[in-house]
Design a protein around this nucleic acid. Structure first.
Length: 585
RNA sequence: GCGCCCGUAGCUCAGGUGGAUAGAGCACCGGCCUUCUAAGCCGGUGGUCGCAGGUUCGACUCCUGCCGGGCGCGCCA
């Protein structure tokens, strides 16, 4: 409807004399938006205000001329000038109910569009290190990324969801050493846990599984393990140096056994993460291993290309990328003096690989603390000959947990963080996903566990679900009274829906495709949550204002048709959010 | 010090590429169940949109400078 009206205005403007309107009018100047107030009609355009200066006339005068010359359109009941020079459009009732017709005939696909058709998007999200269970911050990224993927699909994009597994590098070695120390402790060895190790209980669990699978075959005397190691932090030493030395010692003592510990630890963590996300309704087309990049030579190829272009240089024994020549604040190390790659090297090769796989748009969902990493990655992609704007990074702000007014401390150092699994277990998947998605991604999120758990009217989750359940309940009631519902009659009788509350519901239903479109385009899943609340509100108001199951067969069918339309749209919207639409509550 | 994000009602937050009297939930006050689920509805109280300038016919929205909060500035990831 919006684009119909914009076209109508464009055609009308073109028909006006050039001495009134400077021709041609830039199409992007013409925009139609929903009105806030029903008194202002259904849609409004500010075109007269925008053209006033160029035309050298008063906005209202221009608006009058445009309205007078307005070409006829079946959906437009009337247009009038208001305020400073707005043109308000009143839509014919028949056109208003067209959206409801579509909602019912299209069913689960109502709201979908083709605006992103042909665009191949790879959406990388979560990609948490497999060195510990997912925490509540990852949960927000998971819910947000999954919903953005749904929105992009709904608007025609070809979306590939991917999780990048950081299964190479030092963090994995530290996990391996942590597991081994726990295992040795469980074997009875007197060995202190490294200060820089992963302290969570899950490490104990993996150590126990290691013991179960390999018995004492990986056990070494504490004296051999510790002999000659530098002091750890508690003894006045350096925790980084100590853990690195411990890893080296472990390699020396275990040989191939090192990889046994590493593989088991990694597999355990990934199994846990995959299951956690799957239970949360978050799926990926592909889990992409960082290690596979070195195996395939992709990192070396990317480095060679940068080298050939003169964008690499050596300094202090390390290999640097001239990031400062591509918009970053300073140059960045790709290969350390010890010969090992930094995190950046494989990650850049990975993003280059995404382009090589044919994706036009690379959307990354990152925690807000990684914002400083963006210029580096974009610079690297640009240097490799790919368009810098093919990379789009969505930063997700942090989550704070509250129990009522009390903030829950999240100490990362001692592994005392709340896991996503704990959160889901306490508040449930539905509340969890909706609460995660209620706020804008660039807004810090205060997540109140008490509120999310509450089964009363304070909890916004139920408000939306209740609208769906209410319609189901009405249909059941109809059945129990042995009354038929006839959709053909209902659709034919839609003009009977003339109550203000009914018009409000019709309008809300017709807005849905626009909301999906906009939420996808602006990367604002939270807009869909707010819309669904509005739709539920319009429905609940109507429900209280008029009975649906009435004697008048024509009116009854018309009302039930509208109610079923609400049910369909609520279900479609909740599905995009990954929230269930229960039939009873 | 530099960079990114945020600052809107008592609390938590919405406010299309600038547009009409700044909205919602919760909290608070007052109404509505012999009728389809009251997890609901209706009405009311509540605002210098952090502060100060600037651009504009018009600024919560754009620009500059401050103030306050969060995050980041590794040969960590």
């Amino acid at each position: 409807m919006k684009s119909d009206l914009e076209r109508l205005i464009a055609d009308t403007l073109a028909s006006l004399p050039a001495d009134l309107i400077p021709q041609p009018v830039d199409r992007s100047w013409i925009s139609v938006e929903r009105t806030r107030d029903a008194q202002h009609g259904d849609f409004a355009s500010n075109i007269a205000l925008r053209l006033a200066k160029a035309a050298g006339r008063k906005p209202r005068e221009l608006a009058e001329a445009i309205v007078a010359a307005l070409l006829p359109h079946a959906a437009v009941l009337r247009a009038e000038v208001a305020g400073a020079g707005f043109i308000n459009f009143f839509i014919a009732a028949d056109a208003q109910s067209e959206a409801l017709r579509q909602a019912l005939t299209q069913g689960a696909t109502y709201g979908e569009s083709r605006s992103g058709a042909g665009q191949r998007v790879i959406l990388e999200f979560v990609s948490a290190n497999p060195t510990g269970p997912l925490h509540v911050g990852h949960g927000r990224q998971a819910a947000w990324g999954a919903t953005l993927a749904n929105l992009l699909r709904a608007t025609g994009h070809a979306v590939h969801r991917e999780y990048y597994i950081n299964d190479a590098g030092r963090q994995v070695d530290i996990l391996t050493a942590s597991v081994w120390v726990r295992y040795l402790q469980q074997c009875g060895e007197a060995i202190a846990f490294p200060d820089n190790g992963y302290r969570g209980d899950y490490v104990q669990d993996i150590g126990a599984r290691l013991k179960g699978a390999h018995g004492a075959s990986l056990q070494r005397p504490a004296s051999e393990v510790l002999a000659g190691l530098p002091p750890d932090a508690p003894a006045g030493g350096d925790r980084e140096k100590y853990v690195d030395a411990l890893i080296e010692r472990m390699r020396a003592l275990l040989g191939a056994g090192y990889d046994t510990v590493l593989e088991l630890s990694l597999a355990d963590m990934l199994t846990d993460i995959r299951a956690d996300l799957a239970e949360f309704g978050v799926e990926f087309e592909q889990w992409y291993s960082e290690r596979s990049l070195s195996g395939s030579g992709a990192i070396e190829r990317a480095l060679a290309q940068l080298e050939a272009q003169g964008n690499l240089y050596r300094k202090d024994g390390a290999t640097w990328f001239r990031a400062s020549a591509f918009g970053d604040d300073e140059d960045r190390v790709l290969t350390r003096a010890n010969g090992q790659h930094t995190y950046f090297a494989p990650d850049l090769a990975y993003h280059y690989d995404k382009r090589q796989r044919g994706f036009e748009k690379l959307i990354d969902v990152w925690g807000a603390d990684h914002h400083g990493y963006i210029p580096r990655m974009r610079g690297g992609i640009t240097a490799l000959g790919e368009p810098g704007d093919s990379l789009e990074v969505c930063l997700i702000q942090f989550v704070s947990l509250f129990r009522g007014a009390e903030k829950i401390p999240m100490g990362k150092r001692d592994g005392q963080f709340v896991t996503l699994r704990q959160l889901r277990g306490e508040v449930g998947n539905d509340a969890c996903r909706l609460f995660y998605l209620m706020r804008s991604h660039d807004q810090h999120l205060d997540f109140d566990l008490e509120l999310a758990k509450s089964r009363n009217n304070e909890n916004p989750v139920y408000y939306i679900q209740y609208a769906h359940a209410r319609v189901c309940s009405v249909m059941k009631q109809l059945q129990s009274r042995a009354l038929p519902y006839d959709d053909a009659t209902g659709l034919a009788q839609l003009p009977r829906l003339d109550l203000p509350a009914e018009q409000a519901v019709l309008t809300a239903i017709s807005r849905y495709p626009e909301v999906v479109e906009q939420a996808a385009r602006n990367r604002t899943p939270h807009a869909l949550v707010h819309y669904l609340r509005d739709l539920a509100n319009a429905f609940h108001s109507w429900y209280n204002a008029a009975p649906f199951i009435v004697e008048d067969t024509a009116l009854r069918n018309a009302r039930l048709t509208l109610a079923l339309g609400v049910q369909q749209v609520v279900r479609n919207g909740l599905t995009l959010l990954g929230v269930s639409a229960p039939e009873t509550m």
